[in-house]
């Protein structure tokens, strides 16, 4: 088991080294990166907005329930929704969802290219396939996913406002007061650090799974599933490590 683990870690690192080689034609990589930014960003916008609105709403409702019969002021709902969203929910939930949506898509796309000999065809042309197929995806994700996380945070806070005001828990003014209270800009920095690290993990792990796929459709399906499972585990692990590093 450990031998296999070390083998995969080594192979993953070697693939990343190969992917970071100088591009043959930067313009081609730029074009591919733009395509990926569109696929990852625009393609995931609706699902991320929907999920975020409900997460914010649920957080507000649950916290309001916790505050019943307590001496904590009601405007804390806004404060709690804001901070849980920025520090944890927006980057983590967004990236877990994207690991499922984008990660499985990347693994299937690259794995399909491997099976249909597209990667071999590019190799024979002299293309550095690791660089051409992986780097634009990773870079696109690193640019776009923090933007999505930002939008997710905004939508989540908006969801909290809608739920708490519409539910009669607090007034809009109280919620806004909560949002403006005890604001620590450093938390936003932490959110972006998480978004960038998670974006790198979910794209590179998925690309690795797809790039080395062998066999037929069953193996391709398995690679796609593994891409999601391993990305999720690594995202949660790195979430813990970032939290430890940035809050000490």
């Amino acid at each position: 088991m450990f031998k296999s683990l070390f083998f995969h870690i080594g192979q993953y690192l070697l693939l990343l080294k190969q992917a970071l080689a100088r591009p043959e034609k930067p313009a081609m990589y730029w074009k591919e990166m733009m395509r990926q930014m569109n696929d990852i960003g625009i393609g995931s916008l609706i699902i991320i907005c929907l999920i975020s609105v409900f997460i914010g709403a649920v957080t507000a409702v649950q916290f309001s329930y916790q505050l019943q019969d307590s001496f904590i002021p009601a405007y804390y709902i806004g404060y709690i929704v804001r901070d849980t969203t920025i520090i944890e929910m927006a980057p983590m939930i967004t990236c877990l969802v994207l690991a499922g949506k984008v990660g499985s898509n990347i693994a299937a796309e690259i794995g399909g290219m491997r099976q249909k000999e597209h990667i071999d065809a590019m190799e024979i042309m002299g293309v550095n396939t690791a660089a051409y197929l992986i780097t634009p995806k990773v870079l696109a994700a690193i640019v776009v996913i923090p933007m999505l996380v930002c939008i997710a945070a905004f939508m989540s806070i908006t969801g909290g406002l809608i739920a708490s005001v519409a539910g009669g828990m607090i007034t809009q003014a109280e919620y806004v007061l909560g949002l403006q209270s005890f604001f620590v800009p450093y938390n936003v920095f932490m959110m972006f650090v998480k978004a960038v690290v998670f974006a790198f993990i979910l794209t590179s792990v998925a690309a690795y799974q797809g790039y080395y796929v062998k066999g037929g459709s069953i193996e391709l399906g398995a690679a796609s599933t593994q891409a999601v499972v391993y990305s999720n585990i690594l995202i949660l692990l790195s979430d813990y490590m970032i939290a430890m590093l940035l809050t000490q």
Binding site: K116, E117, H118, D120, A121, E123, I124, G126, N128
Partner: peptide, 16 residues
């Protein structure tokens, strides 16, 4: 090897 491959063309069984 990549430089040599610039001199190579290949037709695949499934066209690729």
């Amino acid at each position: 090897k990549r430089a040599i491959r610039m001199e190579v063309g290949m037709l695949f069984q499934g066209s690729a």
